[in-house]
């Protein structure tokens, strides 16, 4: 009649297993019919590439406005909040001076003007991105077209990618960004607190057949194209002119090239 503890636990365990098993059996059977005949495809207008890259022609960036216009176009489109402090700051494309952007080993006689001349910096969309390797959930990943993208839905906010990125291209949402967005752009979602974000080479615009927002507003200062295509303008510049990249010695193969002192394009 009476049962001992061991028997009780065994029976309770079996009942629990039965319950879970039954639940799975029920839900498992009903899932299937989600849109069987459906397919996914690209937009017809979409511009395609296998290795998106950017050339920053520094000769085209002369005034303060040249920089601000580009940053503003990007930040407004992507709902990048403005926290007005460096601690919580979020930025996708911004300017920094030469000797900080291209850190390490400058000749000490370099003209002050050059040392402090501003450069446009953004995510380099590296060919061997350390951030992608670091991410424990594949929330940041490399697309087939070379763009290093973020899946904000999946990011757990561990910030391993921020530690891994040698270019300081990544920002973290330390606070809810919504109250700090002046004018919400309906073209792109905002982010939630606790995820990392960065430049995405405007893949949402490329999918619609448009150029990245910064390129559009740069008056030719930013040149965007497919590095794998020998006829693309970026490829011509990169192969024939003298360009520099940030920290190439780390082997990440940055895809943002800086054309310094070249006025005419190839």
């Amino acid at each position: 009649m009476s049962i001992n503890r061991r028997q009780f636990l065994r029976r309770a365990g079996m009942l629990t297993a039965l319950g879970f098993g039954g639940a799975v059996a029920f839900t498992g059977f009903r899932k299937k019919e989600v849109a069987e005949a459906a397919e996914y495809s690209l937009k017809q207008k979409a511009v395609l590439a296998t290795r998106w890259a950017m050339v920053v022609d520094m000769s085209k960036f002369k005034t303060e406005d040249d920089f601000n216009r580009v940053t503003e176009a990007c930040h407004r489109l992507h709902n990048v909040p403005d926290f007005k402090n460096t601690k919580d700051e979020i930025k996708w494309i911004w300017k920094d001076d030469y000797h900080h952007s291209f850190a390490g080993g400058h000749n000490q006689y370099l003209d002050e003007h050059i040392v402090h001349s501003p450069f446009m910096v953004l995510c380099n969309h590296c060919e061997n991105p350390p951030c992608v390797k670091a991410c424990p959930t594949q929330a940041t990943f490399k697309r087939r077209d070379g763009i290093v993208a973020m899946d904000f839905h999946r990011c757990i906010g561990c910030r391993f990618c921020m530690a891994a990125c040698p270019f300081g291209a990544r920002s973290f949402n330390f606070k809810d960004p919504r109250p700090f967005i002046n004018e919400v752009s309906p073209e792109y979602p905002t982010r939630t607190a606790g995820v990392v974000e960065k430049c995405n080479f405007c893949y949402e615009r490329l999918a619609k057949g448009e150029q990245p927002a910064c390129v559009e507003k740069s008056n030719g200062g930013l040149i965007f194209g497919d590095l794998d295509n020998p006829n693309s303008e970026v490829r011509k510049i990169v192969s024939t002119k003298f360009t520099i990249r940030r920290k190439p010695e780390l082997g990440t193969q940055p895809c943002v090239y800086y054309l310094v002192g070249g006025d005419d394009h190839a």
Partner: peptide, 18 residues
């Protein structure tokens, strides 16, 4: 499915069963 297709595979168009 839409989320996976659009964000991760870059497929921004859905063609339904019709």
């Amino acid at each position: 499915q839409w989320r996976e297709a659009a964000v991760r595979d870059g497929q921004s168009v859905y063609i339904n069963s019709q």
